[in-house]
């Protein structure tokens, strides 16, 4: 399928986006105060300027760096905890009250301690993102393990898979993978929100979130809006990439859309 044909199939979607942009531009011109609503064209030229200076690239890398630290840690911690809780009832009973005490605390409330513990470093930002992402991963992993079909476990046992570790690794874990993938996806969504908030606290002079704050103070709202849109676009791309990886590689054995 060539691109032209692909675009034609998406006529309605493209018309919708174009209309929204036109309305935005018209409203911005009517208001005519850049501080209240920068026009589409001014945002586009701000975007081009930022790309040419290489600013945007550096900011995006900085933010993604925090994001990878936070999400990576959340995956490394969340999946084992969720697994143990989902499989061993006593661990569930011991750990669940602690998790339920910590989980309702909004991740941003951790920022002060993050800075005290890790200083104004990327690890402080990563920690806040970790807090935001880890609970969806724990809970979905837990649910995935809890819902392992009994008949699959028993099939495994009859086929010689009797040790707990083998049952977890060879049966419960693959069976829980779709739920784990959902947990990671939700966790990444929450984590990305935390990136912006964590950066407001000046852990670096680069970063998409920090620049929103920075240009806001200088009243350059066209640049602020540019950074907001870039934050949205990157989140969208991360989500699409993850879905693609999950559907094409990780969970190819499942029919239809997974997450």
């Amino acid at each position: 399928m060539d691109i032209g044909q692909g675009l034609r199939k998406r006529t309605l979607e493209l018309t919708s986006i174009a209309t929204a942009i036109v309305i935005w531009e018209i409203v911005a011109r009517i208001i005519n105060i850049k501080y209240i609503l920068p026009s589409f064209t001014s945002v586009v030229s701000a975007f081009i300027g930022l790309v040419q200076e290489g600013e945007l690239y550096r900011d995006a890398l900085t933010s993604l760096n925090y994001f990878v630290i936070g999400i990576g840690l959340a995956i490394l911690v969340g999946i084992p905890i969720g697994t143990l809780m989902g499989w061993f009832k006593s661990i569930d009973r011991a750990v669940d009250p602690i998790i339920e005490m910590i989980r309702p605390i909004p991740p941003l409330a951790w920022i002060t301690f993050a800075i005290i513990w890790f200083g104004l470093t990327k690890y402080a930002a990563g920690f806040v993102i970790f807090i935001g992402a880890v609970f969806p991963i724990i809970i979905n992993t837990y649910t995935g393990f809890k819902n392992t079909p009994r008949v699959l476990v028993e099939s495994g046992k009859v086929l010689g898979c009797v040790r707990n570790i083998d049952i977890i690794y060879r049966i419960a874990l693959p069976s829980a993978l779709p739920a784990i993938a959902t947990g990671i996806r939700v966790g990444m969504g929450v984590g990305w929100m935390c990136v912006v908030a964590a950066e407001f606290f000046a852990v670096s002079t680069y970063g998409l979130g920090w620049k929103i704050w920075h240009w806001n103070n200088l009243h350059h709202m066209d640049i602020v809006l540019t950074y907001m849109l870039v934050l949205g676009m990157i989140a969208f791309m991360i989500d699409r990439l993850f879905r693609y990886l999950v559907e094409e590689w990780w969970l190819k054995w499942q029919s239809g859309v997974v997450v």
């Binding site: 008949v151 028993e154 495994g156 010689g160 898979c161 693959p174 054995w253 499942q254």
Partner: peptide
């Protein structure tokens, strides 16, 4: 044993389902 419900491992291909007990 063959169960009443469908009991194949959905994440394994047909061949890999059959090799499961041999892997063990």
């Amino acid at each position: 044993m063959v169960f009443q419900e469908y009991s194949l491992f959905p994440w394994r291909t047909v061949l890999k389902n059959i090799t499961f007990s041999l892997e063990m």
